[in-house]
């Protein structure tokens, strides 16, 4: 009874990939990937998603720590708000970003007036949009790890003379490291595939804001070969991420008692 829907479900996932592979212009692949627009998109995508991940780690780890460890009124609401971008349609996120950080936006007008910073339609804007969408993946993963981490090790460190910052750096952070790596990889992958918020907030300017997903979207009619080539690159990256994460999870979660998690 369950086999038929299972097969249909599996095909639904696999068939489009098969289509992509079957239609791929294998002989021209390198030439296509070498074109100006494709190289620009590839470079921009790798750059912005990596910067977005760095920003997400820098801001998301402290945010996760506060949500996990600091009791304050409205913490549950704050937790829900932080994860909102995960379920929000990205286009809505992009529109909201424009209203907040656009030239006439809530904060954006002052960024422009006081500092001359204009985020929309800039590469920095792409990073902002990707961070907005992708950071919650990191926060959720790391927050759970902070909450699961055994606080008694932190007590032990304090009795050995460790100040709070040392405790965090040398005891708490190593305990959540596997989750941090997994969260960062998820965050990076999500940023790499980001489309809706980016095109709404940062537009589609080749060389400045046109990341790979945007390039696939605009070239799929005009230059189908290039679109498929780009898609294949993204499929390859996604697969690599999945396989890499799987190994990590197997390596750290599978043998937890003897692994480097407490």
């Amino acid at each position: 009874m369950l086999v038929v829907p299972a097969v249909v479900g599996g095909l639904l996932v696999v068939l489009p990939l098969a289509g992509l592979v079957q239609r791929a212009p294998w002989s021209d692949l390198w030439a296509l990937l070498g074109t100006e627009a494709v190289r620009e998109a590839l470079r921009l995508s790798l750059l912005t998603s990596t910067v977005a991940t760095v920003v997400s780690v820098a801001l998301g780890v402290p945010l996760a720590w506060v949500l996990a460890r600091v009791a304050f009124p409205g913490r549950r609401v704050a937790r829900a708000l932080v994860t909102l971008p995960m379920v929000l349609p990205p286009v809505v996120g992009g529109a909201a970003l424009l209203l907040a950080l656009g030239r006439r936006g809530l904060v954006g007008q002052y960024l422009d007036q006081w500092f001359g910073i204009v985020l929309p339609f800039s590469t920095a804007g792409v990073v902002v949009a990707e961070t907005f969408v992708a950071m919650p993946f990191l926060v959720v993963t790391v927050e759970a790890a902070f909450r699961a981490a055994d606080r008694r090790y932190e007590d032990a460190a304090a009795t050995l003379g460790a100040r709070p910052w040392t405790v965090f750096r040398r005891v708490t952070l190593p305990a959540v490291r596997p989750a941090l790596v997994a969260g960062a990889v998820l965050c990076w992958a999500r940023a790499l595939g980001e489309f809706g918020a980016t095109i709404t907030f940062a537009g589609n300017l080749q060389g400045r804001t046109q990341t790979m997903p945007l390039a696939v979207f605009v070239t799929r009619e005009s230059d189908r070969g290039a679109a498929i080539a780009l898609s294949l690159v993204m499929v390859a990256i996604s697969l690599a991420v999945l396989v890499g994460l799987r190994d990590r999870w197997l390596a750290t979660g599978g043998d937890a008692p003897t692994g480097d998690r407490p």
């Binding site: 008694r152 090790y153 009795t159 050995l160 003379g161 005891v171 305990a175 998690r261 407490p262």
Partner: peptide, 19 residues
């Protein structure tokens, strides 16, 4: 705070840092 007290503790479960 604990880090400013000249007190050492041996816990029941050892609590050696696993990493």
């Amino acid at each position: 705070p604990p880090e400013d007290r000249p007190v050492g503790v041996v816990f029941q479960d050892g609590r050696l840092f696993p990493h």
